[in-house]
């Protein structure tokens, strides 16, 4: 079982995080203070650490620095309320592997954690499949059952991203950053995402077949077999 340490002093947030991670079958330990977090990360073995930067007592950056100096090499994902470039750069320089700015979307946190845990284990796939939908990543051909689905370049990238995350929620922020390569989710882009998603859905889920692309209101999208 994958062990995750959450160092977060805000009680409600810590609770939400630990419930979300437990629902994904991680073994979760919560430390409510910097001291406690530092002690545990030092003494026990974790596969991943989620670290809040603003902690009473010992700051997240200090903890991170000391951990790295002592060769505790578990991947660290930092959470920060400040989205200034300096904070991020400092965190990454001190040895953090990824960061998220509060308020973040849970699907995004989960996706980042999966990515960090997957790291170093390259999984070169040439075909993706969900139910009767198949994507050939080399020829960029998409087949639903025995029907060829004709997609534009952007639609293909969007579908590929959704299918790669199949069974997991994908937020608009994730799509903006990973599919559209935009650092910021501005209003025009949001509308573009919605339009592209509607078109993709028409092409993929059109003929009364089993619906694969689902919208989760207020959260994002998910590709999966069967209803939610």
């Amino acid at each position: 079982m994958v062990r995750v340490l959450i160092v977060e002093d805000e009680r409600k947030l810590a609770q939400v995080l630990s419930s979300a991670l437990e629902a994904e079958h991680y073994d979760v330990v919560v430390a409510a203070t910097g001291e406690d977090g530092f002690y545990r990360a030092n003494a026990e073995l974790f596969d991943l650490v989620v670290l809040d930067l603003m902690l009473p007592g010992r700051s997240g950056l200090e903890i991170l620095q000391t951990l790295r100096q002592r060769h505790v090499d578990a991947p660290v994902l930092i959470l920060t309320a400040r989205d200034g470039v300096d904070d991020r750069v400092l965190g990454l320089d001190l040895g953090a592997d990824d960061y998220l700015v509060k308020p973040f979307a849970l699907p995004e946190l989960l996706a980042r954690i999966r990515a960090l845990l997957r790291r170093g284990r390259p999984s070169e796939v040439l075909r993706l499949k969900v139910a009767d939908l198949e994507l050939d990543l080399v020829s960029r051909r998409v087949v639903r059952g025995d029907r060829l689905v004709d997609l534009t370049g952007r639609e293909f990238e969007l579908l590929e991203y959704l299918v790669r995350h199949q069974g997991h929620l994908v937020s608009r922020e994730m799509l903006a950053r990973d599919v559209w390569k935009e650092p910021r989710r501005a209003t025009p882009l949001d509308n573009v995402i919605d339009v592209q998603m509607a078109r993709l859905r028409r092409k993929v889920d059109s003929d009364g077949a089993l619906r694969l692309i689902h919208t989760v209101r207020g959260v994002g999208f998910v590709v999966r077999e069967g209803e939610l």
Binding site: P103, R172, R184, R185, T187, V216, R217, G218, V219
Partner: peptide, 20 residues
Amino acid sequence: YKEAIGSMLEEVDRLTRLVD
């Protein structure tokens, strides 16, 4: 309930973007 929570999240999203 799902509908209600979803619609709350939509508003949270709006707030987040506004604050950003």
